[in-house]
Design a protein around this nucleic acid. Structure first.
Length: 632
RNA sequence: GGGCCCGUAGCUCAGCUUGGACAGAGCGCUGGCCUUCGGAGCCAGAGGUCCCGGGUUCGAAUCCCGGCGGGCCCGCCA
């Protein structure tokens, strides 16, 4: 995309005009950024500080001189240039032109307004990846919400995104669940009214772990089952495939409820059978990235050589093939990483899983169509921060195979903890402020139960406000409110911070929540509807001066493309949440102070601004997976 | 012992990558705003050693160094 093709209807145009004016005034390549407050204009440059230092001048005096010279060269959206203490050069817009440019840009084509000029290319995102032995709890939900939001952001930004859910159906947790059915006599059918994934996680798995504490035979049996699982013809293997599929189907219902979607479900048992590891192993051996240890504690193993890694080298080399010939988790992850990167010749086979909302999902299988990613620019794996080290081992290994390590991104996030209050509500002891959730001990909140409680609260609130609505309509809207509140709660805390989950707090629908965004858009849409009834036409152009609230809202809309560009580059999705929230707050202030219907000479412009707000906020909410409603 | 992350208002968090103009929200607390497009909202007030100590800089919550406190990782588990 060449600059000439970009319409530059957002604040970028003001930035560009300011830079051009500074250049003509002899300042050179100056950094120009949006101001924090409108009293400082629309955009500002701090380059006078640096120039003054280099030339040994007083910053303020120099800034004033720069402002005077620059003022000669502005026009278009910029009306004035003024210096401000202690040395800023501030650019003040012609608000009528600036507003028209922004609102017109949004109303003509919100897509090009927000996403123009962003890179394209393929992206692979792996997320969810929950062991198929239990229902999703709120900790897993953070992974799903982050991963799905990355998918949504990248898709809107014009990338082709392949979403993968890695299903570890061959690990120890699966073996433990199997024990419940094979040795403890649990029926394969849950009690009436109980979901299979919840039955497995809440009842069977917890019971196996409870027994294992008092019965030493359980551990021996688990090892036996684990061995049996390696034989694809065994009864244990067939049973585990069946159970894993049933659990997966239920887990996906929850993911879909949260708004997530997938292209490929990849089962670890299929990866193991595919020969992917053997191929990767040969590549690793050929490159000298691995060696057979012949002494020390790892004698008899094949290990990854980490001696040239600045940090990992301090912790010893990594075992990839155990002395009994089986592979470790990290080994399989290296092989799968190569496959995701398109560096593997081995093709996994896929068959149709389902078609939902026009999106086709495939699952790995014994037979079917061979498929693999072609050559994605970037592969993002969403996994919690405890896997930083193994993920770094993967990166190190693939870079030794000639892959640019920048293409492999571990999207790390801190875990979800339970607040003391909520932990105690589950019967767990909490000495400190928050405790870890535990699948083995049944200490967790399931996503479904949290969503259901949210639906209850939202139903109560909605029914009270909308007594004329049918129960079905109330229920539909309450579901969307619940999902919006939940996803917002998962995304609003930055990924490097732990989330302390408190069930009572999570049921709030006021303040800094998803419903705040939903409510604000509904307000705006009501204005649009009412305007249509009264025959008021939207216009991008103000006919008189703007109020403070109008200026602030216009300005915020104008910087959204910058926020999106930044999020695409850094994957910091938290900034999208902040952006949506700020935008909504400014809209509410506008709403309180600037009547649209009967709003005087600028009524048409105000209507245009409301329409622009709805479009831009709608895009942000779609990215975050907070449903946009018409009414609530 | 080594490594990574966090530490900002009573509580939960933005801001830190790219240093800059008075450190911002939400919840809670106090007090206002429904004859105006719907009050899941808005306005005002109270509440801060930006963990501590050095350093760099005209300027540090932000960058650097050293501490302290909390979490996580360092397995032939996944």
């Amino acid at each position: 995309m060449t600059p000439a093709m970009v319409p530059w209807l957002s604040i970028r145009r003001a930035i560009r005009e300011a830079q051009e004016a500074l250049r003509r005034a002899g300042v050179g390549e100056a950094r120009v950024v949006p101001t924090k407050s409108l009293s400082f204009g629309i955009v500002t440059s701090t380059s006078a500080f640096e120039e003054a230092r280099e030339k040994g001048l007083d910053a303020m005096t120099h800034a004033e001189a720069v402002a005077v010279r620059t003022r000669e060269h502005v026009g278009g959206l910029i009306a004035d240039v003024r210096a401000a203490h202690p040395g800023y050069v501030n650019f003040f817009p012609d608000w009528r032109r600036f507003s028209e440019s922004v609102v017109k840009g949004v109303l003509e084509d919100v897509g090009s307004f927000l996403y123009e000029g962003l890179d394209d290319g393929e992206v692979v995102v792996e997320h969810t990846s929950v062991n198929p032995n239990k229902a999703l709890h709120v900790g897993h939900a953070r992974n799903v919400c982050i991963g799905d939001t990355i998918f949504r952001l990248m898709s809107k930004a014009g990338r082709k995104v392949l979403v993968i859910n890695y299903v570890d159906d061959s690990g120890a947790q699966m073996a433990e669940l199997l024990l419940g059915f094979m040795e403890l006599g649990f029926d394969l059918n849950p009690p009436e009214g109980t979901r299979f994934d919840e039955y497995c996680g809440d009842t069977v798995y917890v019971e196996v772990n409870r027994r294992a504490k008092v019965d030493r035979d359980i551990e021996a049996k688990r090892r036996r089952v684990t061995r049996e699982l390696e034989d694809r013809g065994s009864r244990a293997f067939r049973l585990s495939r069946e159970i894993a599929l049933r659990v997966l189907r239920d887990q996906l219902r929850t993911c879909y409820r949260l708004g997530a979607r997938y292209d490929m479900l990849v089962r670890e048992s299929d990866v193991v059978a595919s020969g992917l590891w053997e191929e990767a192993f040969n590549m690793l051996k050929a490159s000298g990235a691995v060696y057979a240890a012949d002494r020390g504690s790892k004698a008899g193993c094949w290990v990854a050589d980490l001696s040239d890694h600045p940090v990992l080298s301090k912790e010893g080399d990594e075992v990839l093939v155990k002395s009994d010939g089986s592979t470790t988790y990290v080994a399989r992850d290296i092989a799968f990483a190569l496959w995701k990167l398109g560096k593997s010749k081995t093709e996994l086979k896929f068959s149709l899983w389902e078609v939902r909302d026009g999106r086709t999902t495939y699952i790995s299988s014994d037979d079917g169509i061979p498929a693999r990613p072609e050559s994605p620019k970037i592969v993002i794996t969403v996994v919690d921060s405890r896997q930083r080290r193994p993920q770094e081992v993967v990166r190190h290994a693939i870079s030794k195979l000639g892959v640019d390590a920048h293409r492999y991104v571990h999207y790390s996030y801190e875990p979800v903890l339970l607040s003391k209050r909520s932990a105690e509500a589950l019967g767990a002891k909490a000495e400190r402020g928050a405790i870890k959730m535990s699948g083995r001990e049944g200490i967790y909140f399931k996503v479904e139960e949290v969503l259901n409680k949210l639906v209850e609260v939202a139903t109560r609130e909605t029914a009270a406000r909308r007594p004329e609505w049918s129960a079905g309509k109330v229920r539909d809207v309450a579901e969307e409110i619940a999902v919006g509140a939940f996803r917002y709660g998962m995304l609003k805390v930055d990924s490097d911070k732990q989330i302390v989950f408190d069930i009572e707090d999570s049921l709030r629908l006021e303040g800094d929540t998803g419903p705040y965004l939903q409510y604000t858009v509904v307000r705006a849409k009501k204005i649009l509807m009412k305007a249509e009834e009264t025959g008021l036409e939207p216009s991008p152009a103000p006919v008189e001066g703007l109020t403070d609230e109008e200026m602030r809202l216009v300005r915020e809309v104008s910087i959204v493309p910058l926020t999106i560009e930044d999020a695409v580059g850094t994957l910091r999705i938290r900034s999208l949440v902040t952006q949506a929230r700020t935008l909504a707050t400014l809209f509410n202030e506008f709403y309180e102070n600037c009547p649209v219907i009967g709003g005087g000479p600028n009524a048409n412009f105000r209507l245009g601004l409301v329409a622009a707000y709805v479009r831009v906020q709608g895009e942000l909410m779609e990215m975050l997976g907070v449903p946009v409603l018409d009414e609530l």
